[in-house]
Design a binder for these strands. Structure first.
Length: 488
RNA sequence: GCCCCCAUCGUCUAGUGGCCUAGGACACCGCCCUUUCAAGGCGGCGGCGCGGAUUCGAAUUCCGCUGGGGGCACCA
């Protein structure tokens, strides 16, 4: 038997420069799923070494989106662990110690090149068709030379001394072995002149220090990986396993961005998407279980997810499919749960606080009428606002009303019939209205349409019989009479 | 410019040399159901980027091309 394997530790490491993007959410989800399915730990690490773009608001946003999605972390902000702190800017001592060691061992060196010099180098390299990497001018600086630069007032960055020959292979769980020419990599910067570590350095130090076993991240980092591998080796650390996920694209196959519409988790939430749909959809964007299954609960995902079945092709984000899936999850929510989601959702909208107030119908009455028609929580507003808000008849809708089959006669008939009903429940209403339509020799659909418009000022509503019942006799009759006046 | 990744219906994908007459899902179209709209049921349309090679046999392997994407920052 093999010795017991080290417990799995994965991390999601966003840089707090904006909202949580669906691409980031998918990366977080895959990490989370992997950790959960292998009883490992999921760590949230904030990579805020870009001090000019990182903000606290972004951290709050990212955390809120992750919590909403249900992607809880075992260690990270608000959940202290043995490997903290979990914000890179709070780990400065660690990086300083690591760079100091590299420097003293001669594995890294100070570079005093100016931006102009570097720009010049790059231009020349490009013109000559050579790879654009640091030329190594400061590699073997003498102590005297260094003093001269310092006297000039130049500030130094710290660069890693990279091998000039050989190849480095990244053993990627998704892409297989990917080889890189070391000479193409260049002596990259570990520490900026202001003392703040760069991404590649901080990542390598932290992945090692936090004992990360698997790095699951976006494809855009694949080309960085050989640098991190060499750096890790220089520090005498063991490298984690890597899995690079293909990117998510927009409809035009360019990387998904704001101009493709909603891209942040927060926006989808605001537009009435439910977490179940977003999770399921994102899980399937790049991963599949078999040839048949499309619907997965979170528990099923945890049970069935594996990195082996993650594909290597970039995927186009399809809002239509997400919308369908959202409708599906809204339909399968229990009525009580959907009420809770709607209650939460309508806060801040025109319907806030209205259901159940002043004799108005409550969510419990309304949900059964609209559940199967809703594709997003936002649809609830369109579907039910006429129960609460004053009717506004657009000129076109009045025309529709006038243009329906014998509108005045139908309205009068309905008023009379509904007025005389012994009970005002759905069944009784349906029976009487169907009889009335038959009496007038009008098809039920045609008969109901003027009532629908009269009562809602809309062409599309929940079922008419249920709607009238929920509205109540008094309100229904008042609206029918008002409509009668309107068309005369 | 140099390095790397990717390539099956419009989209997400199944497929690892014969089970493929290429399967499923969304979208689309038609029919059914029907009280409007949805939902649901049934059916349909639709794809292996191109060219070579290997093989008795290739969506599946190899090479080239083309196309898309990423990296080459004191961004992550």
């Amino acid at each position: 038997m093999q010795p017991a394997e080290k417990p799995i530790r994965v991390r999601f490491a966003p840089s707090p420069t904006g909202y949580l993007h669906v691409g980031g959410a998918r990366t977080a989800l895959y990490n989370w799923l992997f950790a959960r399915s292998r009883s490992g730990s999921f760590i949230l690490r904030i990579e805020d070494t870009d001090t000019s773009r990182s903000t606290d608001e972004a951290i709050v946003q990212i955390i809120s989106s992750m919590e909403w999605l249900g992607l809880g972390w075992d260690e990270g902000p608000g959940r202290p662990g043995a490997y903290g702190p979990y914000r890179q800017m709070e780990r400065a001592a660690l990086y300083r110690q690591a760079s100091g060691q590299l420097l003293s061992e001669g594995k890294a060196y100070r570079c005093y090149c100016t931006e102009e010099e570097l720009d010049e180098d790059r231009k020349r390299a490009r013109a000559a068709g050579r790879p654009i990497v640091y030329c190594g001018r400061c590699r073997e600086l003498s102590a005297a030379g260094e003093q001269a630069f310092i006297a000039e007032g130049r500030e130094a960055v710290i660069r890693l001394r990279m091998p000039e020959t050989g190849r480095t292979v990244v053993r990627d769980l998704i892409h297989g072995d990917v080889e890189f020419e070391n000479a193409q990599l260049g002596d990259f910067i570990l520490v900026r002149s202001n003392g703040v570590p760069t991404y590649n350095f901080a990542v390598a130090v932290d992945d090692a220090a936090m004992e990360i076993t698997h790095v699951v991240r976006g494809d855009d980092h694949l080309a960085n990986t050989p640098r991190q591998l060499i750096l890790l080796a220089a520090m005498g650390k063991q490298a984690p396993a890597y899995a690079h996920l293909p990117l998510i694209l927009g409809h035009d196959r360019s990387p998904l961005s704001k101009r493709h519409g909603s891209v942040s988790v927060e926006e989808f939430r605001a537009r009435g998407y439910v977490r179940e749909a977003l999770i399921n959809y994102l899980a399937l964007l790049g991963w599949s279980y078999d040839a048949e299954t499309t619907l997965f609960s979170v528990d099923e995902l945890v049970e069935k997810f594996s990195l082996e079945r993650v594909g290597s092709t970039a995927a186009v984000f399809d809002t239509e499919k997400l919308l369908w899936m959202n409708g599906h999850y809204i339909r399968v929510l229990s009525a009580g749960e959907l009420e809770a989601r709607i209650e939460e959702y309508i806060k801040g909208t025109s319907l806030e606080g209205l259901p159940g107030k002043d004799g108005k119908p409550g969510l419990a009455e309304l949900v059964p009428l609209v559940q199967e028609k809703m594709k997003t929580l936002a649809d609830f507003l369109d579907l039910t606002d006429f129960f609460f808000l004053p009717l506004e008849f657009e000129p076109e809708i009045i025309e529709k009303l006038r243009g329906s089959v014998q509108p005045a006669a139908v309205l009068e008939k309905a008023i009379q019939v509904l007025y005389e009903l012994p009970d005002f429940d759905t069944g009784t209403i349906e029976a009487s209205l169907r009889r009335a339509a038959a009496d007038m020799d009008i098809k039920v659909g045609k008969f109901l349409q003027p009532l629908r418009i009269a009562v809602s000022a809309k062409m599309v509503t929940p079922g008419m019989f249920e709607t009238l019942a929920v509205l109540g006799r008094e309100e229904s009759l008042a609206r029918l009479k008002a409509a009668l006046v309107l068309i005369q």
